[in-house]
């Protein structure tokens, strides 16, 4: 992102110079040529071919320079539109959450993990309407257009967490189609990636087993997948390792057991208009489901 930042700095200097020039000329003109009492009409001048040529040619030279800088920066930032290899991960925009899928089969939602210091090729797709995948500090933004695969480079120099957002209006909850990018040292990332590809753990406690049963009875699996169980739905986020995530609902709430229970029964009260309808669950039922989901480490 250094390239885009320097280009912006250059643009800012150029723009500031032009604005200060125009501003000074206007202010000077207003003060110097303010009408004096009793003055008649000033000398009528109609233009100056020389000046007019100057202020046509000089901006032309400036934008030519800017254009060359633009071409160079584009070549440095942009990923090939037809890369000759498979992407490192595929992010897919859904109304209103992001899915990340890795080549080893690991799937997560609302967060993207990457190894620090390594440039990844990311394939951007959409499952429904147009979205836009944007991590301001780490990459250019890229529209996710239905029926098309687009590619960007995603790279973090050092471990850390960054905010991301959908940057194309995509409907009711566009505002909370946010996500985080977590960059980890390569070894930690590999551990995470291998773990995410494993099927879900079988619940070992009584409330969790109860929750697992409820999850099945209430047909949660029609929309959500949990690897290793019968739940194979694809319209909602994959829940195989839901307990590892930091946030729910596109970062609208932290991932706590209370919030999980509340989301299970009344997601509309937390993120109005989202695609998951409220579920007729008793307090005991939603607590049980939350205990089950919390075991999905």
């Amino acid at each position: 992102m250094q390239v885009a930042a320097s280009l912006f700095a250059g643009m800012l200097i150029l723009a500031a110079a032009v604005f200060i020039l125009v501003g000074c000329l206007v202010c000077y003109g207003l003060v110097r040529y303010r009408a004096r009492a009793g003055a008649g009409e000033p000398a009528q001048t109609f233009g100056s071919r020389k000046l007019e040529t100057i202020w046509t040619v000089v901006p032309l030279i400036l934008v030519t320079g800017l254009f060359i800088a633009t071409l160079r920066a584009m070549a440095l930032i942009d990923a090939p539109s037809q890369p000759g290899r498979a992407a490192d991960l595929i992010v897919t925009g859904h109304q209103w959450w992001w899915q990340a899928r890795y080549s080893n089969g690991a799937v997560t939602a609302g967060e993207v993990h990457i190894p620090a210091g390594k440039r990844l090729l990311v394939q951007v797709e959409s499952a429904d309407v147009i979205h836009d995948f944007w991590v301001p500090h780490l990459a250019r933004k890229m529209d996710a257009v239905p029926g098309r695969s687009s590619y960007i480079w995603l790279e973090a120099d050092a471990p850390g967490t960054w905010d991301g957002a959908c940057s194309e209006f995509c409907g009711t909850q566009h505002a909370w189609m946010r996500f985080i990018v977590v960059a980890e040292p390569e070894a930690a990332f590999s551990v995470w990636l291998n773990h995410l590809a494993e099927p879900a753990a079988t619940p070992s406690t009584e409330p969790a087993a109860q929750g697992a049963l409820l999850f099945q009875q209430k047909k949660c699996g029609d929309c959500h997948a949990i690897a290793g169980t019968g739940a194979r739905g694809e319209s909602g986020p994959d829940l195989t390792h839901v307990a590892t995530r930091r946030y729910l609902g596109g970062t609208i709430s932290p991932n706590t057991s209370d919030n999980l229970a509340r989301w299970s029964a009344s997601p509309q009260s937390m993120k109005p208009g989202n695609r998951m309808p409220d579920q007729p669950l008793s307090d005991a039922e939603r607590t049980a489901i939350a205990s089950y989901l919390e075991t999905l480490q």
Binding site: V26, L30, R32, Y33, R34, A35, R36, E52
Partner: peptide
């Protein structure tokens, strides 16, 4: 620039 230059030499 043309609008700005119109100010110059005027009686504003």
């Amino acid at each position: 620039f043309s609008w700005t230059a119109t100010l110059f030499g005027g009686s504003i």
